[in-house]
């Protein structure tokens, strides 16, 4: 379970995240939406212990991320927006490194790694240095590394960027399976179709402020329209000028 309590982050005079509070239950997939620069990545960083909030608290399964960052990180998996892998390691060495950090049982780690390597079609490349990997392969490597310890909470920042359609579909299936197993998935994305199709709950953030948290159905009720998530999102985040432009384009 994820809980954000009055999370605020200032960078100098600029307030990137402003008093954000919400909770995501176990077994839920939460899609975090917002325009560029809205504060999505900053919020994810604060929730996953990568950034200390200016004020407020974050809890993962009841563990305070600020007070016990190492304990909190033991139960989370993190997929950054930009894939980051160690170029001078092979994929297998990288996965062994992660398995050692999380102190996962040798046999279990191997089985999990083998399974994901097969799913993502990377078995043939697992002994190559990752410096020769393409963007998509690096992204897959990061996803496997985040899943190898079977995390209770998974954070994904734009996970489908740079992936081929098959891999994107695989990820969606994996995330659905995780939620069925009672795990919590927190994902930021700009692809609203994915959010609409998969998310149990959505959160919409704009200029650091949380505009909405709830199900897509609740969002429709709140907005009083029956449109798609894309339309609802645009309605909620667009300025008056944008709204006029949209209605003009629609004719």
């Amino acid at each position: 379970m994820i809980e954000a309590v009055n999370l605020t982050k200032d960078f100098g005079k600029f307030r990137a995240v402003d008093n954000v509070s919400f909770h995501v239950n176990s077994g839920e997939l939460f899609a975090f939406l917002g325009p560029n620069g809205a504060g999505k990545t900053t919020t994810i960083k604060m929730l996953s212990g990568l950034l200390i909030p200016t004020s407020g608290e974050a809890y993962l399964s009841g563990i305070s991320v600020n007070d016990n960052p190492v304990e909190a990180k033991k139960i989370l998996g993190f997929v950054p927006d930009e894939p980051s892998v160690y170029d001078k390691l092979t994929l297998r060495e990288f996965l062994n490194f992660v398995a050692d950090i999380y102190q996962i049982d040798r046999k279990k780690a191997k089985e999990t790694a083998d399974e994901y390597l097969e799913i993502f079609e990377l078995e043939d490349r697992q002994d190559d240095l990752m410096q020769g990997y393409s963007h998509g392969m690096r992204q897959k490597a990061n996803i496997i590394a985040a899943l190898i310890h079977d995390p209770q909470v998974l954070f994904l920042d734009e996970p489908t960027v740079g992936l081929d359609p098959r891999s994107a579909r695989l990820i969606k299936d994996i995330l659905k399976d995780m939620t069925k197993e009672g795990k919590t998935v927190f994902m930021s994305t700009h692809i609203l179709e994915i959010a609409e199709e998969m998310a149990d709950k959505v959160g919409i953030i704009q200029k650091g402020q949380l505009k909405f948290v709830g199900t897509v159905e609740e969002l429709r009720e709140a907005q009083g329209t029956e449109g798609s998530l894309e339309e609802l999102f645009l309605q909620l985040t667009a300025s008056e000028e944008d709204k006029e432009l949209i209605s003009h384009l629609k004719g």
Binding site: Y86, K88, E93, I101, D127
Partner: peptide
């Protein structure tokens, strides 16, 4: 065997990564 090669601790893992580099 190489694929199964593990050091078993976070410190060992970090050190192994550095040494491989």
């Amino acid at each position: 065997e190489k694929r199964l090669s593990r050091v078993g601790s976070p410190f060992g893992a970090m050190l192994k990564k550095e040494m491989l580099y």
